[in-house]
Simulated scan of single mutants.
Amino acid sequence: MSVEWLNAPVAKLDETVRAAAEARQQQLTKPPGSLGRLETVAIELAALQGREAPSLEQISIVIFAADHGVADEGVSAFPQAVTTEMIRNFARGGAAISVLARELGARLEVVDVGAVIDPGPLEGVISQRVAAGSSNLAVGAAMSTEQLASALSAGRDAVARAVETKAELFVGGDMGIANTTAATAIAAALLKQPAARLVGPGTGLDSDGVQHKTQVIEQALLLHTALLEQPFEVLRCLGGFEIAALAGAYVAAAQVGLPVLVDGFIATSAALAATHIVPEIRPWLLFAHASAEPGHLLMVEALSAKPLVDLDLRLGEGSGAAVALPLLRMAVALHNNMATFAEADVSEEL
């Protein structure tokens, strides 16, 4: 499978619309800048969507699920069976993101790109299984070039489905036992930082578990040293199928002009990889929340990003992005529906 599609041009933001949105903000019945980031994010969405009155009615949330061979190293507090069990929970509507999507009126789909245990046919779950989990990144490459291409394409396909439903914003989420190990390894490689600066407890490791996880990641970084200057190879050697699918989705969304709201630690590692592979996509990425995982701050700083909220979240699933969505909707509503000074017959400053 080819990855040539990654070289397709990225859509341009509409700077004329941005200027019009900025001018409107100056005319609304409030002191300029008094609504802070609610103003700036509304302007950004206007430029991204190419319309002076942005809209966030149609939201597409896609959860990519897969297992990781590095779980064999004992880096997670939970067994790999949980990934498949959670896929079934998503399908039944019992997961956090399921509840949040219903509350938001958002379209939710789940893509199985490689759980160790095949969950079988489930309503709302799309099977694009690359393999029954990735390989162990601590003893070899997490995936082959062909597998990486397949996982990237799964993300691209998800964006195509979102476009078909006239989505106005794309949210990607993750599910995969041991995926914080892969995400931390990716971040350490791309940021050229020691694992100890980035590693966290994931699903609940104690201090000894975190120390062991750090050693496993350092072992992987040493093993793949010769390839770590190439972002595509970093993703192949250290990533996972769901992380690669997220990266593919981010690139594809930027190519078709669909704004993205990036979730937490795993999603941000995918964004970091994607922007290293295709730097031009960065303006299409908005960042939802500051993850409680220690390495997240270093990643968002490297991406020159400022998350919308900080609630000590570390669940994944796209849940942090879903929680931040009402803020974006309020920003859009204020931008679109507040009266101007002229409309309200209110005096402007002297």
Rank of each mutant, 00 (worst) to 15 (best):
V3I: 15
E4Q: 12
L6D: 13
N7Q: 14
P9F: 05
T16C: 03
R18Y: 08
A19Q: 15
E22P: 00
L28A: 08
G36N: 08
G36S: 12
T40H: 06
A42I: 08
E44M: 01
L45F: 09
L48S: 02
A53K: 11
P54E: 00
G69T: 07
E73A: 15
A77S: 15
V82F: 00
T83K: 08
E85R: 01
E85K: 03
A91F: 02
A91Y: 04
G93N: 05
G94L: 10
G94Q: 06
R102Y: 03
L108D: 05
V111C: 11
V116E: 07
I117A: 14
P121T: 09
I126M: 03
I126R: 15
A131E: 10
A141P: 13
Q147M: 08
V159S: 10
R161P: 03
R161W: 01
L169V: 14
G172P: 09
D174H: 07
G176Q: 11
I177S: 12
A188Q: 03
A196P: 01
L205F: 10
D208E: 14
Q215E: 11
Q215N: 14
I217F: 09
I217H: 10
Q230L: 02
P231V: 05
L235F: 05
R236Q: 15
A245Q: 05
G248F: 11
A249K: 00
V251H: 05
V251Y: 00
A252I: 04
F265H: 03
F265G: 00
A270E: 02
A274T: 07
A274V: 08
H276L: 06
P279K: 05
E280A: 15
L286I: 09
A288C: 06
A292P: 03
P294G: 07
H296R: 01
L297C: 02
L297V: 09
L297K: 12
K306E: 10
P307G: 12
D310Y: 06
D310P: 01
R314Q: 13
G316M: 07
S319M: 01
G320K: 08
G320E: 04
G320I: 09
A322K: 14
A324G: 10
L325E: 05
L325N: 13
P326A: 10
P326M: 11
V332N: 11
V332R: 07
V332T: 10
L334G: 04
D345P: 00
D345H: 13
S347K: 07
E349S: 15
